Amino acid sequence: MNVLIAVLQMQTSPGEPAENLAAIARAARAAAAFGADLLVTPEMSLTGYAIGTDDIARLAEPRSGAMIGAVQTIAEETGVAVVAGFPEREGGAVFNAAALVAPGAEPIVYRKGHLYGDAERAAFAPSAAPPAVFAFRGFRVGMLICYDVEFPEMVRSLALQGAELVIVPTALPAGAASRRVSKSVIPARALENHVFVAYAGLCGDERGTALEGGSAIVGPDGEDLARAGAAEALLFARVEPGRYDEARAENPYLADRRPDLYRLAD
């Protein structure tokens, strides 16, 4: 049992969903040509991330809106499931969300729980729902968004639900701190939970905000299967859980847990 994953590192056209959808469609066609089952794109890939509170509010749509409808069309035409980030409106609230859109299926939407910095807190409401695991092509999959993955409890909660793959759209600001997250935190999350992590980042510049990139696909042994530089890229890796049984046996973190020793505090 395996799936071929593609991760798109992209520079958006800020505030221009039609242009971003065209870029994602091109990547989906390329992914399909290589036989990929899933294309993961970055945080807020449909609109751009650093576009300001007003434009986020203006562009926000429900999950039944035109942007996710267009992603559904891309998935149907290419046969590739697509994860896309977007501002999701529900009632009077806007959430930083990501949707997994597979051919012939209803979108699966995750909302970001940990908002990063004042700009995100001004633009979005945080999710109150814990992350959940769902089935995709015979795999147990969970989604997080950017800052969420930096909290070990989030990935561990998915692993304890049986996740084999954790999908993480992200938008890292450029700098050394972000490079540490990409190069140190992401491999650690994969290793300590024995999960694959597909980490898809924005790159380039959005209205004066420089973005790090940092995209990677990491295996359950903490080793990179694919990693991008600073520029736009399309990464590929095959997810084959059975190949990592030895790594799980060498470091059986989940089996050896002692929850009675873990005193949690607010």
Rank of each mutant, 00 (worst) to 15 (best):
L4R: 09
M10E: 14
S13F: 11
P14T: 03
E16G: 05
P17K: 00
E19I: 10
I24T: 08
A25K: 11
A25G: 07
R26E: 11
A32S: 14
G35L: 04
A36P: 00
D37T: 08
L38H: 06
L39H: 05
T41E: 08
E43G: 00
I51Y: 06
I51K: 02
G52S: 13
D54C: 02
S64L: 01
S64D: 13
G65F: 04
A70K: 11
A70Y: 09
I74N: 10
T78R: 07
V80K: 09
A84I: 00
A84R: 00
F86P: 03
G92H: 02
V94S: 01
A99D: 10
V101A: 02
P103W: 03
G104S: 02
I108F: 11
V109D: 01
R111N: 07
R111E: 08
H114Q: 08
Y116A: 10
Y116M: 09
F124A: 00
A128T: 14
P130M: 13
P130K: 10
P131M: 00
A132M: 15
A132R: 15
F139D: 05
R140W: 07
R140M: 13
R140A: 15
M143C: 02
C146H: 00
V149K: 02
E150Y: 12
F151T: 11
P152R: 14
L160G: 12
L160A: 12
L160N: 10
Q161P: 04
G162N: 00
E164D: 03
V166Q: 05
P169C: 03
L172P: 03
L172G: 03
P173E: 14
A174W: 09
K183V: 11
V185E: 12
V195I: 05
F196G: 04
A198P: 07
A198E: 06
A200E: 03
G208F: 05
T209H: 15
T209S: 13
A210K: 15
A210G: 12
L211S: 07
A216H: 12
I217Y: 13
V218E: 12
G219E: 02
G222K: 03
R227M: 01
A230M: 08
A231Y: 05
A233D: 15
L235T: 14
L235K: 14
L235Y: 10
R238A: 08
V239P: 14
E240H: 09
G242A: 12
Y244I: 04
D245K: 15
E246P: 06
A247M: 13
A249H: 04
N251H: 13
P252F: 01
L254W: 04
A255N: 11
A255F: 14
R257A: 15
R257S: 11
L261C: 12
L261A: 15
L264P: 01
A265G: 12
D266S: 11
